[in-house]
C-alpha cells in the first residue's frame, strides 16, 4: 500500500467532528486536530438552535 489510510481533520467544530465521525464509520483512522482545549467550536457557545430549540450541546 503506497498511501496512508489515516486522515487529518483540521478543526474540531461541528463540521470537523461530523467529518471525523463519518470517516471513522467508513473505516479510516482520523486525527482530529483542534487548536482549543476542547472540541465543539462556536456551536458549543450557542444557546438554543433552530428549529427544535435544543441546546447546542
Amino acid at each position: 500500500m503506497n498511501q496512508s489510510g489515516a486522515i487529518l481533520v483540521l478543526g474540531g467544530g461541528v463540521a470537523g467532528v461530523q467529518a471525523a465521525l463519518d470517516l471513522a464509520d467508513l473505516g479510516y483512522y482520523v486525527y482530529l486536530v483542534e487548536k482549543k482545549a476542547s472540541i465543539g467550536g462556536v456551536m458549543a457557545q450557542l444557546d438554543k438552535t433552530f428549529p427544535t430549540n435544543d441546546c447546542s450541546l
Binding site: I7, L8, V9, A15, A19, Y31, G41
Partner: peptide, 13 residues
C-alpha cells in the same frame, strides 16, 4: 509527525 493520506480543512470562521 503524522502520516496521513488526505486532509480535511474545517477550521470554521
Amino acid at each position: 509527525a503524522l502520516e496521513v493520506g488526505a486532509v480535511i480543512l474545517a477550521p470554521g470562521f
